[in-house]
Amino acid sequence: MAFHLRRDTARLLALISPSLTWLVVFFLLPLLIVFAISFGQRGPYGGIRWDLTLANYARLLDPLYLRIFARTLAISLATTGISLLIGYPMAFFIATRPRRWRNGLLILLTIPFWTNFLVRTYAWLLILRDNGLINLFWTGAVHTTIQQLAAWFPLPWWDELLRATAEPLRLFGTDGAVILGLVYGWLPDMVLPCYAAVERLDPRLVEAAQDLYANRVRAFWRVVFPLTRSGIIVGSILVFVPCVGAYVTPDLLGGARTMMIGNVIYSQFMMVRDYPFGSALSFVLMALMLMGTMIYFRLGAEEERRLA
């Protein structure tokens, strides 16, 4: 392909400069602006004073914000863990189906993924909220059944159950609801890389382990798990990263007590109008994210070397 590699500078510039210009002006420059503003201070009337201060970063150490960072990380880790518990076996489920089914099963997995995130989150809102599907069932059918049972067999514990079912369960506005919404949103991102790793797995290696009298558990931990670790790592990062930056899920399914970093950034920009502090928060969020992604690329490169 020698003739393509000719250093035709004019043509190369024509090809890349439109995108380059767009990304430098509308991405890189805004990125640098956020970085610069994060060292500024909020002026009177919500303006920006261009100081050179670390005050915004120091403010992040306030227990209030540290708690929100900690909660964000905890929710993201819980989401990643649950997605792994559901997604990893799911990869094996799909990989062990007949070959002609597998593509269909994968597509079936990604279809909800392509529907609008707001709509998918809203579907859970309908199920979880105080007058939602679960609670209508709880305060309706479950409550009446217990009433009838109590009428037939008078036993001491019915009273407590009646009191419990008289009121809706608190599902909406909890950390659990947020985690559920996030798992629902990002599960395919966990399954797909795990599936890619499981599919590549050479079944003869597993047979060899079993021929050498490894039992199922041992064969799994010594052979299958190490060979699919790359998929687990990639999937975990693909789930973890968007969770850390989540805004919609905690906003719709969480309450005031389940704020995540994304919600704080939103309120700094749209309500408090403290742009410098909001910028510092965004910058720390991006740094966290870039660290995650760098680990991802490094592990990916290592894995490739190992397999090659």
């Binding site: 991405f27 805004p30 990125l31 602006i33 956020v34 990263v241 968007p242 850390v244 930056g245 805004y247 994304g262 950034i265 939103y266 920009f269 909001g278 910028s279 965004s282 969020l285 991006m286 994210m289």
Partner: peptide, 9 residues
Amino acid sequence: IPDIAMAVM
């Protein structure tokens, strides 16, 4: 980059 960071920028 997370959506919210890009939005803010």
